[in-house]
């Protein structure tokens, strides 16, 4: 009782039929063509890294990086310090909101409520930065009357960074192996003791990647900063002072004029940001790969 409808064929070499030729040929051609699409990602990256470096490096000197003189228009000292100061406080705030929020979501919320909270964190990540920027401008600059200031920029940027820390903290605590969690809580540990003594050491590397990720995103953001601070010629003296952020400098130089001097400075700023962002990404990658290996070793 063999299948009468389809003849049983014994030939396993190419049978010369047009259909077979097409099938095998198409698969082979696709197998060569699709990998070439990687070039769409690789060529722009190489071009970007090359040209930004080529425009920035020849004139990038120690003086350019460190001079904070308010009379120099070719130095980056003030924006570098400004960026550092903004990032410092914004990261602290983002860690404060995000870390406690993420841990609370993983440990104290029912699945239903946690689902809503997670969705809102995801939506916040998907919210265009211009909207967060406008929100910061309207709320902090105008409504709270802080003006275009260091502190307004810090709060706006921290709102932008919070969901990234939040998500990794939540994920890190949610993925603590169930038996470890239950063993700790079952042996009479209070939730607070579990979080501090058991959960945090396990979740720490992953939370760290979340913080670095948030920093990489924060330091490259433009719209929220441009709309809530104004560039100053000095490093901020009070929290209401103007402050210059590197991305902001790129935008301002770009918007004001395309004179070559300002353009070089913008490229130098772009180079610095690019280096910082790529470095943070590499660190994230290293930590998470080591962390995964450790996890496999421990719980496999």
């Amino acid at each position: 009782m063999e299948n009468a409808s389809v003849p049983s064929v014994d030939n396993i070499r190419f049978d010369g039929s047009a259909r077979t030729r097409w099938r095998l040929g198409f698969d082979r051609v696709i197998g060569w063509l699709l990998p070439l699409l990687f070039l769409v990602a690789i060529l722009p990256i190489l071009s970007l890294v090359y040209y930004v470096s080529a425009r920035a490096l020849p004139t990038l000197s120690w003086t350019v990086l460190t001079s904070t003189s308010p009379y120099r228009t070719d130095a980056l000292g003030v924006p570098i310090i400004g960026t550092f100061e903004v990032m410092l406080l914004a990261t602290l705030l983002a860690v404060l909101f995000g870390l406690f929020g993420g841990i609370a979501t993983a440990e104290f919320l029912s699945d239903r409520v946690a689902g809503w909270v997670r969705m809102s964190a995801n939506l916040l990540v998907g919210t265009p930065s211009i909207i967060i920027g406008y929100f910061g401008y309207f709320t902090f600059v105008l409504y709270f009357g802080w003006g275009l200031s260091y502190i307004a920029g810090v709060f706006t940027l921290s709102f932008f960074m919070t969901p990234y820390v939040f998500r990794t903290a939540d994920l890190a605590f949610t993925s603590v192996p169930r038996h470890i969690r239950e063993a700790a809580l079952g042996s009479g540990a209070k939730p607070s003791q579990y979080i501090l003594k058991v959960g945090t050491p396990i979740a720490f590397p992953q939370i760290l990647t979340g913080v670095f990720l948030a920093m990489a995103i924060g330091v490259g953001e433009t719209a929220p900063i441009v709309l809530t601070t104004q560039p100053g010629v000095l490093v901020p003296q009070t929290v209401y002072s103007p402050v210059t952020f590197l991305t902001q400098l790129i935008w301002e130089n770009f918007a004001q004029s395309q004179s070559s001097g300002l353009q070089v400075l913008a490229f130098q700023a772009a180079f610095l940001i690019m280096v910082v962002v790529i470095a943070l990404n590499i660190v994230v990658r290293l930590i998470s790969s080591r962390y995964r290996k450790r996890l496999e070793g421990l719980y496999a």
Binding site: D10, N11, I12, R13, F14, D15, T20, R23, L24, D27
Partner: peptide
């Protein structure tokens, strides 16, 4: 396979 080596030259695994 019925006298043809399936690892032989000109044999396609798909077939």
């Amino acid at each position: 396979y019925v006298g043809q080596n399936i690892y032989g030259p000109g044999v396609n695994p798909v077939l």
